[in-house]
Computed example of a mutant assay.
Amino acid sequence: SFLNKDRKTKSLQSIFSETVFGKPPAAAGECATPKLLQYAFIHGLEPLAMAEFWWGASPKSEIRKHRQFYPACTGKCQPILKHMLDGIPMDDNPLLQNHGENTTLKIIYEDDSLVVVDKPAELLSVPGIQIQDSVYTRLKTTWGNIEPLIIHRLDMATSGLLVVAKTKEAHKHIQRQFLKRTVIKRYTALLSGLVKQDEGEIRLPLRGDLDNRPRQLVCDTHGKKAVTVWKVVGRQTTTTRIHFWPLTGRTHQLRMHAAHEQGLNAPTVGDDLYGTGAARLHLPAAYLEFVHPKTRETLRFEIKESF
């Protein structure tokens, strides 16, 4: 059983019965934070602050950097900590804050069939569980009776070009182009570290980390195919500027392929999940090319990176 500051106890089974899993996962409660808090409450101590960092080599499947701080895992620790920290004044959870609230959604191109927008960093592509503000909701508010039909998405932290359909016909046509991989998408990234090779291709299968969403894992057994073509376009003293062409569209694909030791082993600057946080993630979707669903004209869009 686990204590909290009011010396109320809860068993693992009771804690996880309130989660979507219904029961505790393997090794739940074995992490350092619940054990340290348990010691504090047993001995009448008051926790003032706590942070966890990784020490040593990274596991093969996930990305952990030596001396880098990481939040508690969502699957095993957070349900326990919700009970143990109950009643203790806490800082606001940054993951539940809408950091894209005061950003501007720029319209790059618009006609009767579609719109191409420049999504700002920290704005969701579609509404989330906690945050509704998104590209979808903003376009819906602007268009009124026209339903925005989302064709593809960008990670919340990723800025750049996004095409949204206005009609079912346009949605179907452009979606087919994505499925056939005839759409050309290019991202520009600033990586922390020097990449020695000039270009290449990364093939690392990915799947979600069930114990620590939204993080992803490299998994040869259950991972989905993930392929990225890359080319170095500039090097500075401690950073590499690179172009990425994702041939598949897995969650966090470029961020994982950049940071993982079997990829480029160079996290994207500003990547607070797989590297070190900064003011923003330096990974804009800078180029987008596809065929217009009505005119059959090839449309090309490019935005200038701000770094």
Rank of each mutant, 00 (worst) to 15 (best):
S1H: 13
L3Q: 08
K5N: 11
R7P: 01
T9A: 14
T9V: 14
I15Q: 10
F16E: 07
S17A: 13
G29S: 09
E30V: 00
L36W: 05
L36M: 12
Y39L: 03
F41C: 11
H43P: 01
F53P: 00
W54P: 00
G56V: 03
P59S: 04
H66A: 08
K76S: 11
Q78H: 11
Q78E: 15
Q78V: 15
K82M: 03
M84E: 12
M84R: 06
I88S: 02
L96F: 13
Q97K: 12
Q97W: 02
Q97T: 09
E101V: 07
K106V: 10
I107S: 10
I108Y: 05
L114Y: 10
V115D: 06
V116L: 08
V117C: 04
P120K: 04
S125P: 09
V126W: 02
G128V: 03
V135D: 08
R138G: 01
K140R: 12
T141A: 15
W143R: 00
I150G: 02
D155N: 06
S159Q: 11
S159C: 01
L162R: 12
A165L: 09
E169V: 01
E169S: 10
A170D: 01
H171C: 06
K172S: 15
I174Y: 04
K180D: 15
R181K: 13
I184H: 14
I184S: 11
K185H: 07
L191A: 13
L191M: 09
G193A: 01
K196R: 13
Q197V: 03
D211E: 10
D211C: 04
R215G: 00
L217Q: 10
V218T: 04
K224D: 04
V227M: 04
T228P: 05
T237K: 15
T238P: 00
R241L: 13
F244V: 00
W245I: 09
T248Q: 03
H252F: 06
Q253D: 07
E261D: 11
N265D: 14
A266S: 14
V269H: 09
G270R: 05
G275S: 10
T276P: 00
A279Y: 06
H282R: 07
H282Y: 08
A285C: 15
H292M: 04
T295I: 09
E302I: 04
S306K: 14
F307S: 03
